[in-house]
Design a protein around this nucleic acid. Structure first.
Length: 179
DNA sequence: CCCTGATTCGC
DNA sequence: GCGAATCAGG
């Protein structure tokens, strides 16, 4: 689907409103990715959204190694689709300084985030250092100086040394302020 | 990991 | 002109 005047206008409007590219893409409908939005934004020369003081010393990415970009049109569903059919984010996700119309009715009941409960590993599931393997969660639990020290031991993700629970935790915690 | 915008370049 | 891939950053 091409960029009709209407769609471009909507794009401009939403962009100025401060919505993110992905949100705008979702707003414009299917077949529009956030990359498409960003690309269009640039072509329209309206990328400057909020940059009062900056001469933007953009650093170039340097040579890209002539890659075979497009994999293929065949969208073969990868074999190991691990859980969670990503449908999480619908549309109206407000963030930042947005002046979208507030709905009259508001939910008074707010679900309080469950106190980050630590995983409890049954004794028979606990493993010691020697029992660690490639696919075993290496999240340490307890005091290393005591006997109540053990590793999580659950099946770890392919993307890291931890299980999903601990992987998520490790990142989200020690995320900000690298180094 | 999640996400953001920025850039390049084959189409 | 378009946008996927990639980069850089949070």
């Amino acid at each position: 689907m091409g960029w009709t005047d209407e769609r471009v206008e909507l794009l401009k409007k939403l962009w100025m409103e401060g919505l993110s590219a992905s949100q705008i893409a979702a707003e414009l409908g299917e077949g529009v990715t956030r990359n498409a939005v960003i690309g269009k934004v640039h072509r329209l020369k309206l990328s400057a959204r909020a940059k009062p003081t900056n001469t933007a010393p953009r650093s170039r990415p340097a040579a890209r190694p002539s890659a075979p970009r497009r994999p293929s049109t065949s969208s073969s569903s990868t074999s190991t689709m691990s859980s969670k059919p990503r449908v999480s984010m619908s549309r109206p996700q407000v963030m930042g300084a947005t002046a979208l119309a507030a709905s009259p009715e508001m939910d008074t009941e707010v679900y309080v985030a469950p106190a980050a409960a630590e995983l409890f590993i049954p004794e028979d599931k606990r493993i010691n250092l020697l029992q660690l393997s490639e696919s075993t969660c290496k999240w340490p639990i307890g005091d290393p100086l005591t006997k109540d020290f053990y590793f999580c031991g659950q099946h770890s993700l392919e993307t890291g040394p931890y299980c999903e629970f601990h992987s998520r935790r490790a990142y989200h915690q020690l995320d900000k302020k690298k180094r």
